[in-house]
Structure formats: structure tokens, C-alpha cells
Design a protein around this nucleic acid. Sequence first.
DNA 1: CCTATTTACTTGCAAAATGCAAGTTGCGCT
DNA 2: AGCGCAACTTGCATTTTGCAAGTAAATAGG
Lengths: 138, 138
Amino acid sequence: MNDDSSRCRSNCPINFALETFGDKWTLLIIRDMMFKGKRRYGEFLASAEGISTNILASRLQRLEASGLIVSSKDPANRGVALYQLSPKGKDLLPVMLAITSWSGRYDALSSAPAAFLEELESDREGLTRKIRAAMEQT
Amino acid sequence: MNDDSSRCRSNCPINFALETFGDKWTLLIIRDMMFKGKRRYGEFLASAEGISTNILASRLQRLEASGLIVSSKDPANRGVALYQLSPKGKDLLPVMLAITSWSGRYDALSSAPAAFLEELESDREGLTRKIRAAMEQT
DNA sequence: CCTATTTACTTGCAAAATGCAAGTTGCGCT
DNA sequence: AGCGCAACTTGCATTTTGCAAGTAAATAGG
């Protein structure tokens, strides 16, 4: 293999959006929205990893600024804010599934349910469709 | 859809290895090893994003501790350290490709070469094989 | 053999990000 | 009006990062 299409030299870098992927809390918030259907400030705050309230506010702001989520007020209750994934945010699903699959295989602390992991390996497309449908519901 | 296999409640969390994915520099180092064939301390230090030397040392140590990379001394030159992806590290390829694909579509600052992105969309399996082969070379 | 250079780090300190606890604001209910 | 809840904001201590400089070991040249 002497054509080099699979490798990049420093003059043709592969860069990616580090603001999104290089941050722990950002990924957790997206995960919560994507797989757990969370939409409210208090729900994110309650996640097992224990994000603190100032950081949560800052990350939600950043996520909205970069177009990954959209915020609105619950029409039934103006005191409640709703955060939802934008199409751009929903398109992170393949990334999250790849991370989940790798973590399920290699990271002992990463406990996705076994049924979920099995379905992910055996029928990723079907699972993807199901999750996309679930995301539209909210 | 009232079976809930595509969503998880808080009692069945999807957790992933945040030490790996939640850190900016960790991802960049893995990218450099995977797509650019970098193996040496000085090469990582020279990456466009400008990691500082103390952070690089700390991340390499962490990556080795978590089994993603293996370090050795260059047999031809004992003063030179070589860092290489372990099988566990190489298996991050699908994650990196998913991130690259998303970034290529949505992030203006993320410039993977167009030919790479096209191949990624049209023949991901083939590209994956090529990159895996290239990774074995080092 | 002695010196200079390269490579891979370590150290010290200032700046920034994070974590924690407490306070504030706006809305809905009674 | 008064209470409660949800969504933030603020202040401050702690941790992490970034930057500049320094050290140690291994080749390279004279």
C-alpha cells in the first residue's frame, strides 16, 4: 500500500470538534438526552455522575450556542425549561453508539444493559432506527 | 413502541469511559497515532493544537495505564521512546471515524481531506480495513 | 574521550476551569 | 399575599492547565 489515502500528513489534518468531544460533561448531557429522554435542568442535575449546577448551566449554554440543542419553555408551565437535541445533535447518535460499543467491550465500569449491547452488535441499524424514533417522540 | 429497549432509565445507565472520551488531549493523541502514524513524544508535541509538554507526559502515562497504548524504547536508538496503540486502542477506530464523519458534516473548523470524507461515506468498511492495515505497519 | 545536540521528560508558578454551598429569581398554586 | 419548586447565579476554595525553564540520558561530531 503506497497510496496514502488512509493516512494523513500534518498538512492535511483530521480535526474534529473538540468543544463537543473533548469535554466530559458535554458528552454526559448528550447521552442523557439521547438515551434517557431527559429534557429538564433538574433531570440532568440528578444524573449519577453528579454534575454541579454552575457547570450544567454553562454547558447547556455552550451546547445551545453551538447548535446541538434547542431550549424552550414548557408551554404548560412557563417556569420549566425544556432542552432538546437539534437535528445536528441527534446526528451524534452514531458517535454515541460507537463509544457505547467500545466501552461495553473494554471498560468494566461502563455498564450498558447487556440486551442493549447485544442488539447493538447484532442489529445496529434496527437499534438506530428505534432510538431515532424515540428521539422524535420528545 | 411501548417496549423500552431503545431507552434506558436511570436504573440501567449507559456509562462510558470518560477518562478516555471526556478529555481533549487524549483524543488528539489517539487521532495522531491512528491517522498520522505518530509514535514519538516530539511528534505529538508538534501537533497543530499545541499540547504542552507536561500535559503530554501526563496523558501518555494515563493512556498506558489504561492499556490504550504501549510504550517502548526504539531498539535502533535507545534515547527515543516509541508509543503505539494496543489492540484496545486500535479498536477505537470506529469511534474516531464516527467523530470524523460528524465533524466533517457539521463543524466548519474540522477539515479532514475531502477525499477521506467521501471514502468514509461511500465505503467505510474498505477504509476501515485500509487504516487497520496501516496501523499494523508501525 | 570530551563536548554539543537531540529527545524525553520534570519543576515552579500564574491563570483558568471546576466543585461546593448558599443565595436569587420567576412562575404556579392556595 | 405567601409558600414551594424549578432554574439558575454568585463567591470562594481546590484542582487542572498552560507556559517557561531546567534536568537527565543517549547519540553525533571532533
